[in-house]
Computed example of a mutant assay.
Amino acid sequence: MPDYTTLLVDEREDRLHVALDRPEVRNAIDATMVAELHDVCDRLEREPRILILSGTPATESRKGVFASGADIAQLRERRREEALAGINANVFIRIAQLPMPVIAALDGFALGGGAELALAADFRIGTPSLKIGQPETGLGITAGAGATWRLKEVVGEPLAKEILLAGRVLTADEALAARLITEVHESADLLDAAHALADRIAAQDPLAVRLTKTVFHAPREAHPAIDTLAQGILFESDAKFARMDAFLAKRASRTTKGNPA
Rank of each mutant, 00 (worst) to 15 (best):
E77L: 01
Q74L: 11
A246P: 08
L37P: 14
H185L: 10
E36F: 12
T214G: 03
R76A: 11
I103D: 04
A118I: 02
T56L: 00
K250F: 08
L234C: 02
I201T: 14
L197V: 06
A105H: 06
G138P: 00
L37C: 15
V40D: 02
I95K: 11
I72F: 12
P260Q: 09
A73K: 04
F123L: 14
A218E: 06
I132D: 01
N27E: 02
L229K: 06
A85W: 08
Y4S: 12
K257W: 11
A67E: 02
T32V: 01
A115V: 00
A252K: 00
V102I: 13
F216E: 11
S68Q: 09
V154L: 05
E36G: 12
R200P: 15
E183S: 13
E77Y: 10
T137N: 07
L111K: 08
F235G: 15
E82G: 00
A196Q: 08
Q134V: 04
R22V: 15
A85H: 05
A19Y: 10
A143S: 14
P57T: 09
E116A: 09
T142H: 13
I201N: 13
R79Q: 03
H195F: 12
I52L: 14
R124F: 07
I72E: 14
W149D: 14
I29L: 05
A225G: 10
T212Y: 11
A194K: 02
L8A: 10
A175T: 12
R94C: 12
V102C: 14
T59K: 15
I141Q: 15
A58M: 10
K63Y: 15
D71P: 04
G133F: 10
G258W: 00
P219E: 00
D3Q: 01
E153W: 07
I125V: 13
L16D: 05
R12W: 02
F241Y: 10
A242T: 06
A83S: 11
A252M: 04
D42M: 07
L44K: 05
R46M: 14
T228L: 13
D189C: 08
G167N: 01
G138A: 03
G140E: 07
E13F: 05
I87V: 09
D238S: 14
